[in-house]
């Protein structure tokens, strides 16, 4: 046997050790991926199942209850600062932001009239996101865009697995108190198509190609990207406070 140009006699026990180490590594990775991977998978499934029974709707209703909502905007029109959120319904980090942090932002900033939120849906993950965006903007026509976005996040499946189907949209619509038929009809409307195009154009003009991305606009100021260190409330709100100064 020759290694690095030097003839080497490899003791048999070395080859056995090598084989054992590699086999152990393969087993370790398989166990880790299966155990940890299936752990997150079942957690996601549990969340989806639990919320499909109506829990998500309750949460969404309590988050947005009593807050004015018009088209894609959540909050008082007079709010001096606008936080625009670029999201993709298939994006797991958008789900994390929406489920974990949005309620805090709404409670601490939107409800008090300091900030209004504007939703901008963009396709980043794949074509299936378009179905979700159509449903979300269809709900906007009945001023329930934010509830629909949250209801879809509650049902989020694997990326590009085709989980955003019409039955899923109908279920989400029903859960947030909209007529499923009305939503699915509106999904094909010119207004919805136009809203999606407008959102994509705005994202393109800001050079946004990932989600979630946040942009903030102060009175008379330009729309500028908000840099955040993380999506948890503890990481997100300091950046918001800084931007509000």
């Amino acid at each position: 046997m020759s290694l690095l140009g030097h003839p080497v006699v490899v003791p048999r026990n070395r080859l056995l050790v090598l084989g054992a180490a590699i086999a152990a590594a393969v087993v370790a990775v398989v166990v880790i991926v299966v155990v940890v991977g299936s752990g997150s998978g079942s957690s996601s499934t549990t969340t989806t199942t639990a919320h499909s029974g109506g829990g998500g709707a309750t949460e969404a209703r309590s988050t947005f209850a009593g807050i004015p909502q018009h088209d894609d905007t959540l909050g008082k029109a007079s709010a001096p600062v606008t936080l625009t959120v670029f999201e993709d319904p298939q994006c797991p980090f958008c789900r994390q932001w929406n489920i974990d942090t949005l309620p805090t932002v709404v409670q601490n900033y939107v409800r008090s009239g300091r900030i209004k939120l504007v939703y901008r849906g963009v396709v980043v993950i794949g074509d299936n996101s378009l179905v979700g965006l159509a449903a979300i903007y269809a709900a906007a026509e009945q001023n329930k865009l934010w509830q629909m976005a949250e209801a879809l996040y509650e049902r989020q499946g694997d990326e590009n697995s085709g989980w955003i189907t019409i039955p899923v949209v109908r279920s989400a619509a029903k859960e947030i108190g909209l007529s499923p038929a009305q939503v699915t009809t509106a999904m094909r409307s010119a207004a919805v198509t136009s809203a999606i195009r407008k959102s994509a154009a705005e994202a393109q003009s800001l050079g946004i190609n990932g989600t979630p991305t946040f942009a903030i606009q102060k009175p008379l100021g330009p729309l500028q990207q908000l840099q955040v260190s993380g999506l948890d409330p503890g990481d997100f709100t300091p950046a918001l406070d800084q931007a509000l100064r």
Partner: peptide, 12 residues
């Protein structure tokens, strides 16, 4: 970015 933001970017 798509890879970095996918569910495979994290383990547990």
């Amino acid at each position: 970015e798509k890879v970095q933001k996918s569910k495979y970017a994290e383990l547990g």
